[in-house]
Simulated scan of single mutants.
Amino acid sequence: MTAGSAPSPSPGPGKADELAAERLRHVLGPATVVRGTALSGGLHNSARLLELSDGRRLVLKTAPPASSPALAHERGLLGTEALFHRIAARTGARVPTVLHHEPAGPGTPADWLLLSYLEGTTWDAARDRLTSPDRAALRRRLGEDLARIATVTGPAYGYPQPAAGLSAPDWPTAFTAMLRAVLADAGRFDVELPAPTGFLAGLPVRFGHRLAEVRRPALVHFDAWEGNVVVDRTASGPWHLSGLIDGERAFFGDPLAELVGLDPLGAAEDDADLLAGYRSVTPALTLDTGARVRLALYRVYLALVMRVESVPRAYGGDHAVRLDGWSADRVMEQLAVLDALEA
């Protein structure tokens, strides 16, 4: 539900289907849905591919009920996604077109978003079919698009949805709030952390002078890994970038943070093709000591988010065990990087 509105009773499956059909009729006009297919890959919001009577293919995304367990920054994610795609599109970046967004409220049990469908397949699904030249060209194009997106300046730093309460007039304050929110989530979900909470909470203070080097709240997707990049080709022709999807984790802040979301497990700043594309739009991108300190901080933050979200997502089995071990190693690795850079 939106802030300040009263909760509405959750309808049963039949009523929910009727409400969805009514909303889509209002948005789609004479076109009707002839087929709907669940899309995999989403970990918070659900998504369906809708095939219409007029030949169009659209994506309907629906948020979970407000009562579902979630991290603090996950409030209003579809509102963030709608905002991201609308303003990123103005830069010339390839993103889905926002057709309709409706926040939760009276008569609307859950936030929902209707988007155009990007033809193709996700990069991770096509990985084995890409040659080295394909990959180099795609990474350059992705770097260009992300640099264009980063030219957008937001009204404040941090997550844009007021319900999250994680924005501020400067980057050190906003990042401190973001980091401490996920630490509070860890306490709420009883997640053991790889380092003491107080020590982790103090990182933005310890390196506040480096965070203060960020002077403009740039738009950052922060989740542009290969599963959220769509690529396509015609017959045996070259692969091209169809676009970037799932902008729900976006925030306004340090554009360097994009490098962390691009490769959560590695170091995107070591990708020469990606940086060449980025610098073709923004030649001033630098990777000095201050930049590397901030990258390490953002890697600590992302590893903690991935560690804590495993509880409300109810991960289990080997995946949960691997994530637990990886996130602990990643945090400790980046704390060592910070120590070395500080020295």
Rank of each mutant, 00 (worst) to 15 (best):
P312K: 00
L200E: 01
L52V: 13
T289F: 02
P9T: 11
R294Y: 06
R48A: 10
L179Q: 03
D324C: 07
G55N: 08
T286P: 01
R233L: 09
R75P: 10
G253R: 03
T286S: 11
L287V: 11
G316P: 02
L179A: 04
S280N: 04
L166F: 00
T173M: 03
A147L: 06
R215Q: 15
A224S: 12
A110L: 07
R210M: 12
G36F: 03
W112H: 13
D54E: 01
T80I: 14
G277S: 08
V34S: 10
T97G: 10
H26Q: 15
A340F: 12
R313H: 05
T91A: 09
D329T: 11
F251N: 01
V182I: 10
E74R: 01
V281C: 11
W239S: 06
A296E: 03
E18F: 05
A104Q: 04
S280H: 01
M306K: 00
A343S: 09
T108W: 00
A201V: 11
G92A: 14
V95K: 00
A82H: 00
P11C: 07
A93E: 07
V152N: 02
E144C: 01
F207V: 01
A88C: 11
P96C: 01
G41Y: 09
A89R: 13
T37V: 15
V337F: 07
A336I: 05
V214D: 14
W123I: 05
P106V: 14
V281Q: 08
G105D: 07
A47T: 00
S310Q: 15
H100M: 09
L200P: 05
W171G: 05
F251L: 15
Q161T: 05
P172V: 04
Y159D: 08
F207H: 12
L219C: 13
G42L: 00
N45G: 06
V300H: 00
A267C: 08
G317L: 08
P312G: 05
V300C: 02
H221M: 04
A164I: 00
P9F: 11
P169R: 11
F207D: 06
L118P: 13
P255N: 09
A284H: 01
T97N: 04
L341K: 06
T80G: 08
A38F: 05
A314L: 11
S5P: 06
V331M: 02
Y117M: 12
A181K: 03
A88D: 11
H319I: 10
V59I: 13
R129M: 12
A224P: 06
L78R: 09
L28S: 07
D246S: 06
P194L: 04
P13C: 07
D54P: 07
L297A: 05
A163C: 02
R215W: 05
P65I: 04
P155R: 11
Y298W: 03
A195H: 01
L118W: 04
